[in-house]
């Protein structure tokens, strides 16, 4: 697996990545337990806590907030198919 930008998070990142990859190939792609990868949730939380500190320290957290804001259009286009349909029907009803 690849490294973390924060060396202190490498160990927990490696454990999480391994867990995720197993879930992705053995469950997600086979349509089993597609709601969430719960078995890796604990590891992710630990890794995330470690990473958040490192991001704050380096000032990356602020840059990420802006990037997330800019990415909203992509999110709507690639995730929100249902939402589009809903607003369409609402529009029709108003007419």
């Amino acid at each position: 697996m690849s490294q973390s930008l924060a060396p202190e998070c490498n160990e927990i990142k490696e454990r999480y990545d391994t867990c995720f990859l197993k879930w992705y190939s053995e469950k997600y792609l086979r349509g089993i337990g597609t709601t969430d990868n719960n078995e890796c949730a604990g590891l992710f939380k630990e890794y995330s806590t470690c990473l958040q500190g490192a991001l704050k320290e380096r000032g990356i957290d602020k840059l990420l907030e802006e990037a997330r804001e800019d990415n909203k259009e992509n999110d709507t286009a690639l995730m929100g198919k249902k939402k589009c349909k809903l607003s369409e029907t609402r529009g029709l009803r108003q007419r």
Binding site: Q3, L5, A6, K13, F20, N37, Y47, S48, L64
Partner: peptide, 8 residues
């Protein structure tokens, strides 16, 4: 040099 997962 590094790849970090932020959310999933």
């Amino acid at each position: 040099v590094a790849v970090d997962t932020l959310s999933r």
